[in-house]
Computed example of a mutant assay.
Amino acid sequence: MQVLLFQLGNDRYGIDTRHVVRVLPLLECKTVPHAPPWVAGLMNLRGEAVPVIDLRRLARSGQGGQDEHGERHDPGEPRFDTRIVLVRHVARDGRSRPLGLIVEHAREVIRLDPSGFAASAIDTPQAPYLGEVTTANGAILQLVDVDRLLGDEAAALLYPESAA
């Protein structure tokens, strides 16, 4: 399995590349008034309005943290290596839609043996998108399940046509 590696703060995560369409530089998004803090807005992708969520804010619930140099920063504050990973999200209704994910350090794809992954030792019902874990290059890596990123309420917010 090929995995796109990225970071949220100091923690390493990965997305199965079968879901990844492309990695984009951080683009300006149209803000959506009254949206939750983890909704970055809408980006224009060749004339299509694509919802973008800030995975850093979603995972950290808007709390600040320290980076690898011990400096405090807001998880939503853009950095030089902040990227948008464009993925295909398959909703519960079976429809596949584009979704942008704001992440940090998304610049490496590695091949991992799927049998090396195991269930996380910590249950996180508030974050059902956090998947199995493994070690890669001496560090723990956790998969993000793109199709479980959005609950029903979030999917209805980002894709209102499917809620009708």
Results as ranks from 00 to 15, higher is better:
162 S>G: 15
129 Y>P: 06
63 Q>L: 13
96 S>P: 08
20 V>H: 06
34 H>N: 15
93 D>E: 14
8 L>P: 01
40 A>L: 06
59 A>V: 08
85 V>R: 02
20 V>W: 01
89 H>N: 11
130 L>F: 15
58 L>F: 07
155 A>P: 05
18 R>E: 08
30 K>N: 09
19 H>Y: 14
1 M>C: 05
144 V>M: 12
163 A>R: 08
140 I>P: 00
9 G>H: 06
68 E>S: 14
157 L>M: 11
34 H>T: 13
118 A>R: 14
18 R>F: 03
22 R>S: 14
141 L>R: 07
77 E>F: 11
12 R>C: 07
87 V>S: 02
129 Y>G: 09
79 R>W: 01
128 P>E: 11
127 A>S: 15
64 G>T: 11
90 V>P: 03
117 F>P: 03
152 D>R: 11
87 V>E: 02
14 G>N: 04
130 L>P: 10
34 H>L: 13
26 L>S: 08
102 I>F: 03
152 D>Q: 13
131 G>R: 15
52 V>Q: 01
160 P>I: 13
87 V>K: 05
14 G>I: 00
158 L>A: 07
55 L>H: 07
134 T>Q: 10
151 G>W: 07
89 H>W: 15
123 D>M: 05
30 K>F: 12
115 S>V: 09
122 I>Y: 13
119 A>W: 05
46 R>Y: 05
86 L>H: 03
10 N>T: 09
100 G>P: 02
99 L>K: 09
100 G>Q: 04
147 D>C: 12
158 L>P: 02
65 G>F: 04
97 R>D: 08
19 H>A: 14
127 A>Q: 15
63 Q>T: 08
98 P>I: 03
154 A>M: 14
32 V>G: 01
126 Q>V: 03
78 P>G: 04
72 R>L: 10
148 R>Q: 15
9 G>K: 07
12 R>Q: 06
92 R>G: 15
112 L>P: 00
115 S>C: 04
153 E>N: 09
35 A>D: 00
161 E>G: 04
26 L>D: 00
15 I>H: 00
160 P>A: 12
148 R>N: 12
39 V>T: 06
61 S>M: 11
52 V>E: 02
73 H>L: 12
82 T>M: 02
90 V>Y: 12
134 T>W: 01
163 A>F: 01
9 G>I: 05
86 L>G: 00
19 H>Q: 06
134 T>L: 04
108 E>W: 00
98 P>Q: 02
144 V>P: 00
24 L>K: 00
29 C>M: 10
149 L>C: 14
115 S>F: 02
55 L>Y: 08
26 L>K: 08
92 R>D: 15
112 L>C: 07
147 D>K: 11
24 L>N: 00
152 D>W: 09
